[in-house]
């Protein structure tokens, strides 16, 4: 594991979000920190508010939303901290893609349907890394190679609808990693994919983390994926953060009820899969 620094690089403090005046909050007083190189999972049932936290961290929530609390990106000691919720749009645009990047649940839907893959990659390379127009295309093929795509030329020429879900998620990862971010937010990155492809994407994220000192905020409802990718789990239940524990203590009996339920769900899913496999063989 990577060397851990004493201060956290990303801090969420007392975050509360409501989408409209008078509506019930989707997040209530949520606080969490991520250290440099650390991977944490945000786990909870669907609708508990975990995706809202991810969008708030990128400041991608609708302008009409009511947000309280603070989100600060510190990076390493040399840089001045960025107040995500308070900075102007310019500053945030420089944070997105360059320091915090994100991959989404629906990989094909997160790509522009009328633009070839290589063009989308070249565009991001030009904007985020300042690559020249002439070298951006080669850079696009290289970044496809880096996310384990064997024939980058063919994939580069393709449109998003021509790709499989797994292939599209690799492309989305290549787009997210183009700016060499410090923190990757992965919002249910494998939920729309089938079993073997899920494992491949998990392996790809793990491999990327090993090579770079990337911090990871993984959002998932699947405790098994959380276990595979992270060393700390934060559990959200009905808008509140109810548990925050290292992955090796997950089996302990005295955890919060929501945590226990999510562990059980993962175990049930695993045993169901095994039973199904035994029956079909």
């Amino acid at each position: 594991m990577n060397e851990r620094s004493t201060h956290s690089m990303f801090e969420v403090t007392d975050l509360s979000v409501r989408y409209a005046r008078g509506e019930a909050p989707v997040l209530r007083d949520v606080s969490l920190t991520i250290d440099r190189g650390e991977s944490i999972a945000l786990v909870g049932d669907s609708g508990c508010g975990k995706s809202t936290l991810a969008l708030a961290a990128m400041r991608l929530l609708p302008k009409t939303a009511f947000i309280r609390g603070s989100i600060v990106l510190r990076g390493d000691n040399r840089e001045t901290p960025v107040d995500i919720l308070g900075s102007d749009e310019r500053t945030i645009e420089r944070v997105r893609g360059r320091r915090i990047a994100m991959v989404f649940q629906n990989p094909i839907g997160s790509l522009n349907p009328v633009m070839r893959i290589e063009k989308q990659l070249a565009e991001v390379l030009r904007v985020v890394r300042g690559t020249s127009r002439s070298t951006a295309k080669r850079g696009a093929l290289e970044s496809l190679n880096r996310v384990g795509i064997a024939d980058p030329v063919r994939v580069g020429r393709a449109y998003p609808h021509e790709l499989s879900g797994g292939m599209a998620q690799r492309v989305a990862l290549a787009l997210a990693l183009a700016g060499e971010p410090e923190l990757l937010i992965a919002d249910e990155p494998t939920s729309a994919l089938d079993g073997i492809v899920q494992a491949q994407i998990v392996e790809l994220i793990r491999e990327t983390q090993r090579q770079t000192n990337l911090s990871l905020l993984l959002i998932t409802h699947d405790m098994a994926i959380a276990k595979a990718l992270t060393n700390r789990v934060c559990v959200i239940e009905a808008t509140r953060l109810v548990d925050d524990c290292p992955i090796d203590q997950l089996t302990a009996a005295d955890r919060h009820a929501a945590t226990a339920r999510l562990i059980q769900a993962a175990e049930f899913k695993r045993s169901a899969a095994i039973t199904l496999m035994e029956r079909t063989i």
Binding site: R94, R96, M102, P113, A176, G179
Partner: peptide, 28 residues
Amino acid sequence: EDFVRAAHARGLSHRRVMLRHVLPNTLR
């Protein structure tokens, strides 16, 4: 659509997202 949000998340400027991603998909 998701890809507009994703384009913002990749650090593209608002102007670029509108001109290169939103408009072509709107005019189609």
